[in-house]
Design a protein around this nucleic acid. Structure first.
Lengths: 347, 347
DNA sequence: CTCAAAATGAGTTGCGTACCTCAAAACGCC
DNA sequence: GGCGTTTTGAGGTACGCAACTCATTTTGAG
């Protein structure tokens, strides 16, 4: 009742014999070095395919010798989510050291396309891989493509640039995240009818816009008893979020649900509490931070949509490593799931 | 604005020089081979500590040469959750091949302690690591300890044996899972008062008992309007689950919530539908399978508590590999989270 | 056919470790 | 001091591949 799931090993020598060529030629094909007739290339590749040859990664790494350099290009501001990603990278240091990986953090103004593009261009050459929290803008796209052309592996993190030729996107489906938030607000509000407020950073941000889109989709189709108020823009700042929400709460006594799309959670919570309505309004937000954790435990927040920053950090490194090594990527593993976090399943 | 997170590399030669001994002695210390004076051992270990020496895993692997064998000891029955774990292991085959890992599936009757213990004992010697879905029973505990003593790395999967000396447990906190289910049933039932039913496989199973415990905790403390009916035992079988639940539904017209602790989901759903109450009763169950996915999409099930079988399979392999190599384990990464899955965040 | 250019073979070296042997040195004991 | 034992050093080989050199063969153009 025992079956084995894996094949046995082959070496380059076996491939050379199989293809009827020498080791040197196999090596030339494998690293597409010049000086091999197309016909011979095909023969060697056929032998590799036929035997499902997997180069011995440990040997290759040992022979190549050099350690790899990865760079993480992230926002420079005091964003708790990004800080968590940094923290998790720090926790990986032993894991990274064992694999002779150097990870470098580059803080930059990711909201200024030209600054971000310049930061990316500066990395060209001395980096094997780059993970970037990218703004979707033509000059950023061009910078990414340049890196890719230079042989650097590029992964977009949290926020994608689908039109670029980046190798991979590590982050969630923000429309689905918005839909999930909508379903939660609707269901947790119970049978009540009333109004629902949305506080976002800015509708100009791709991920925020997508979340709002998904949220409205669900509200319109499934919760006709709830009417969504116009989106408030809090610029991800606590003060501003508090002000705009406080004003809205004062105007509408029948608000039963609230969706906070981005950051500024502190201000949103304060506005709710000050109005004395923190227990009546269903409040759904994003990300598990020290703050949202406390709000969930206090019952002020009802649920947080989370995208596990630890997983994102690790996935980004793993994907870059796999890309650099030419290893397969476990897509299922690297996919970032939309977590619903409530009080009892707080991680 | 760029900082590096990782130190630079050292080799055994450096350590030897540092400690004022030869390479051979360092080697003896590193693999605790005999014939080294305690004092010298200390000197070498001090040098290793002092320089935070990390052996070059690739080189070690290459030198050691042998491929590793891991065994997964799993239930033999047609359990969809276990089948998913097997499937994910299959998807990892390329990843496994690259690392020269052989994973063997051993199907056994995990509910018979002596049979399970015998299966484990049989693996002693020719396996570097074992992942086992274990029953918590003295003879199983003894078999696990024997494996550990023989140098095999042991990981318990899904169901733990905390009293054994297993190296790691890969699975969720079942009490917290039960609490989460309770919170969901309570909150999604809204303001209604009424009765809540529980269908379990058997209260003799550790994980089921723990889930029920957590569920009752939350219901008692937070939803006084809801009264929990005595636990039904469906033995994880569809037919039996359907029968017992159908009888209960007939008897109580005011059931507003239902928690299905284990398998037998098909039967539970059928009983609900046949009674024409699938839309009124809040139904929370476990695990995302083909069936529960359909039920969630249809709106019959309201939420599934999930423990990502893919993550568990990969985590088990990664932990075994790290243990075998003597690498650090990323505890945060290997921790299995309690996922709440609703229709819009179906993975 | 000739000759240069292209293609290929044969070989070396080194990566850092594991594992082994054998000789030399240091040690403890009487 | 002499002996046997323990401890240590020195060195080799192997692992599979990358990256290189240089000699040899093959090829195609004239």
């Amino acid at each position: 009742m025992a079956e084995t799931l894996t094949p046995t090993a082959l070496t380059l020598k076996d491939i050379a014999r199989e293809a009827g060529v020498s080791l040197a030629t196999v090596d030339r094909v494998l690293h597409n070095r010049p000086g091999v007739r197309p016909d011979t290339v095909r023969r060697v590749q056929a032998a590799i395919e036929r035997n499902a040859f997997q180069p011995h990664v440990a040997a290759a790494e040992l022979a190549r010798g050099r350690s790899r350099r990865f760079a993480f290009v992230m926002p420079s501001g005091p964003n708790p989510f990004m800080q968590q990603i940094e923290a998790y990278l720090g926790e990986m240091s032993a894991w990274l050291a064992v694999r002779r990986l150097n990870v470098e953090m580059v803080a930059t103004d990711v909201f200024d396309p030209s600054v971000l593009a310049a930061s990316l261009e500066a990395l060209s050459g001395d980096c094997d891989g780059v993970a970037v929290v990218a703004l979707d803008h033509p000059s950023v796209r061009a910078a990414i493509n340049d890196l890719v052309d230079a042989g650097t592996k590029v992964v977009t993190l949290v926020s994608d640039v689908p039109s670029s030729r980046r190798h991979h996107y590590v982050g969630i489906d923000n429309i689905a995240a918005g839909r999930t938030a909508g379903a939660l607000v609707g269901r947790l509000a119970g049978r009540k009818s009333g109004k629902v407020a949305i506080v976002a950073g800015s509708q100009g941000l791709r991920d925020h816009a997508e979340r709002i889109f998904g949220f409205n989709q669900v509200m319109a189709s499934e919760f006709p008893g709830l009417s969504v108020l116009p989106v408030l823009e809090g610029r991800d700042e606590d003060d501003r979020s508090e002000q705009v929400l406080a004003r809205l709460l004062a105007k509408h006594a029948d608000i039963v649900g609230l969706y906070n799309v981005g950051a500024g959670t502190q201000g949103v919570a304060k506005a709710l509490s000050d109005a004395g309505r923190d227990k009546q309004v269903v409040f759904v937000g994003h990300d598990v931070t020290v703050l949202t954790r406390r709000l969930l435990l206090q019952g002020v927040m009802d649920a947080a949509i989370s995208q596990n920053p630890g997983h994102e950090a690790r996935a980004a490194v793993r994907v870059l490593l796999a890309l650099a090594r030419g290893e397969p990527i476990l897509r299922e593993q690297e996919k970032i799931r939309i977590d619903i976090v409530m009080r009892d399943n707080l991680p």
